Amino acid sequence: MTSQRTPFEPALTVFMMVKTSPEWLGFTVDRRFELLGEHFTPILKKHAANVTLRFFDVEFYSTRVTDIWMWDAKDHHSYELLVEDLRETAFWDRYFDVVEILAGVENAYAKNYDRPLVTA
């Protein structure tokens, strides 16, 4: 899983909170990367024009989830198509339990009220 910069202005950002399964952790590291290359990477490439992924490890600080997959999507439909493809793999609720999905629009409060962004 590679970290990419978004080549478009995302219509939404989705934080997919996942937890590795015992089955996934039972694979060797080499086997995990083989599986990613065989099944996950082709989906990322297929949707790369409309959806990007950033991957965060959080198992050091959380017991509820081990990773956060942050998806930026050009539009809602593109994200939905990506999820449909992911659901057809063992990465969805077999190798990783999808614990929670939070979708949001970056800076919508400011855009909706035609106000400047509040940033640090």
Rank of each mutant, 00 (worst) to 15 (best):
F33L: 13
D30V: 10
L36N: 09
S3T: 13
F40A: 02
L36Q: 10
V14T: 13
V29N: 15
A11Q: 11
T2Y: 14
K19L: 12
H39A: 07
T13F: 02
L36W: 01
Q4G: 04
T2K: 14
E23G: 13
T41A: 06
F33N: 10
A11Y: 04
V14R: 09
K19S: 08
T20N: 11
S3C: 08
S21I: 11
T2D: 07
R31D: 08
R31N: 02
P42T: 00
L25F: 06
P10Y: 08
F15R: 05
F15E: 03
P10E: 06
R32K: 06
R32E: 00
L35E: 02
K19H: 13
L36K: 04
V29L: 15
E38I: 02
M16E: 05
F8M: 07
W24Y: 10
D30S: 13
F40D: 01
S21T: 14
F8G: 02
R32T: 03
R5E: 14
P10M: 09
A11C: 04
P7F: 10
T13Q: 07
L12T: 03
P42E: 00
S21C: 09
R32M: 03
H39C: 00
P22A: 14
K19E: 08
W24V: 01
Q4F: 08
E23S: 14
P7C: 09
W24E: 14
E9Q: 11
D30E: 15
V14A: 01
P42L: 00
F40K: 03
E34K: 07
L25C: 14
F33H: 11
F40T: 03
E23L: 15
P10C: 11
T2H: 12
R32S: 01
L35Y: 05
L36Y: 11
F27C: 11
E23H: 14
M16S: 08
F33W: 09
P10I: 06
G26C: 14
E38R: 01
F40Q: 01
P42K: 04
T20H: 06
F8L: 07
F8K: 02
S3K: 06
P10H: 06
P22G: 11
M16C: 09
F27T: 14
M17C: 05
F8D: 04
F33A: 07
P22V: 11
T20K: 14
M16T: 11
F40M: 05
F27M: 15
L36M: 10
P7K: 04
S21H: 07
G37L: 04
R32D: 00
V14K: 00
P10A: 04
Q4S: 11
Q4I: 05
F27L: 13
F8R: 05
D30G: 08
F40E: 01
F40G: 02
V18L: 09
E9K: 09
V18M: 12
E9I: 12
F27G: 10
T6V: 10
E23Q: 12
T13P: 00
A11V: 03
R5P: 07
L35P: 02
T2R: 15
D30N: 13
S3R: 10
R32W: 00
M16D: 05
M17N: 00
F15G: 03
R5N: 12
R31W: 01
H39W: 05
V18I: 13
K19G: 06
D30W: 04
